[in-house]
Write a protein that binds this DNA or RNA. Structure first.
Lengths: 208, 208
DNA sequence: TAGATTGTTAATCGATTAACAATC
DNA sequence: TAGATTGTTAATCGATTAACAATC
């Protein structure tokens, strides 16, 4: 555990390091220097060394880094071996795709429940799990104690749903609902995902 | 058009400004000061004024900004009224969800073709369009001249497919394929979307 | 030991914030 | 005119890069 808070710029680079190291390991690469890795990833060796040293000295002078040991360390920092209990609310197009396409386990999460407010959808199966009606959310959370929620609901419902989920013990939101979630409790983690904003930056670039 | 290249930090904030201004306009708000807007968006008034002044003086001293005029200007900068011709490759879970869920038109893009390499999928309809077999890609591009491609294909196929699409005239990639796209031509625009990396930062936060 | 490469400090760069003169 | 708020310059802050002593 780091002594000092790590900047979010650094944390957001960790999954990418992990990805490259996983691939190197699969290719049976044993050791790598910050210089080699930087060339492959398109960043500077300095940055890699700075980033890694936020968490401790994982390398060895004159040698570099051991690929599997480093991958292991970064995985541990990211908590990839955890099983953070997660529910998903809203099984429209996007909700279904996320439930089926996203590998939650690989990221230290476990999808334990799916919910939808539409009674005709409730009861159906998705990603090997039944979809529950949102009416049963309170009881489910009391029993199963999820800590993370994926929000794939319409934007107008999101703030209210989020506050309710906080009262049921949710500590983190992966929010796809097209609304900037701003909650009263500052300790709750929020990742607002705006897929379309990323599309807009491409459209901007094409105009120039 | 800006004289000097605008930093990507600024450009990435534009869609969010646009979103907030759209909502203000819907709420019949006529004018807003950078101070009021900053309070609503959770950033500083200075930053808003700096950002907007990259593109020109849209405000008026002593008054603030006219909501619809400013929204219009930002929309124009982002090219929301364009119809950038876009194809989508790969109609698995994620590809289907993107085709149906993402509002391309709102972001200045138009989805004009869907492709899949699986012959049993080709011919089916999705989002009101037929899915073509990837074998027909070359002819389609020569006829229809798309400039953007959404990649929802497996990671191993992505680099090769991307290079091929560049040769067919594609200038921008919205890449969901779990591979860091790095192309030989530096003028090609790439947005690598790593949904799962965003999940990892949440998992990290919960561990602290 | 000599060569290589880290960990870490110092320098640079860019982005954000503050301040204020210009002006509506 | 007086008050408000921009546009813009200057100051600050944080992140990235460079440099190098420590050390394997």
């Amino acid at each position: 555990m780091p002594k000092q808070a790590i900047s979010s710029s650094v944390i957001r680079r960790l999954p990418r390091y992990h990805r490259f190291l996983t691939e190197l390991e699969q290719r049976k690469v044993i050791r790598i220097s910050s210089k080699e890795l930087s060339a492959q990833m398109g960043l500077t060796a300095s940055q890699i060394r700075q980033d890694l040293n936020c968490f401790g000295g994982f390398g060895q002078q004159g040698y570099g880094y051991n690929v599997s040991a480093l991958r292991e360390e970064i995985g541990r920092i990211l908590g990839v071996n955890n099983r953070c209990r997660t529910i998903l609310i809203g099984t429209g197009n996007l909700g279904r795709a996320i439930a089926m396409h996203v590998n939650f386990q690989q990221r230290g999460c476990e999808l334990i429940g799916l919910f939808d407010s539409n009674p005709t959808v409730a009861g159906r199966d998705l990603a090997g799990m039944p979809i529950h009606h949102t009416d049963t959310l309170d009881g489910f959370c009391r029993m199963e104690k999820p800590v993370m929620a994926v929000l794939c609901i319409p934007r107008d419902n999101a703030p209210q749903m989020a506050e309710h989920l906080v009262s049921l013990g949710i500590r983190a939101f992966w929010n796809f609902s097209h609304a900037d979630l701003i909650l009263s409790d500052p300790d709750i983690l929020i990742e607002n995902v705006y897929l379309e904003d990323s599309l807009s930056t491409l459209a901007y670039g094409l105009n120039q």
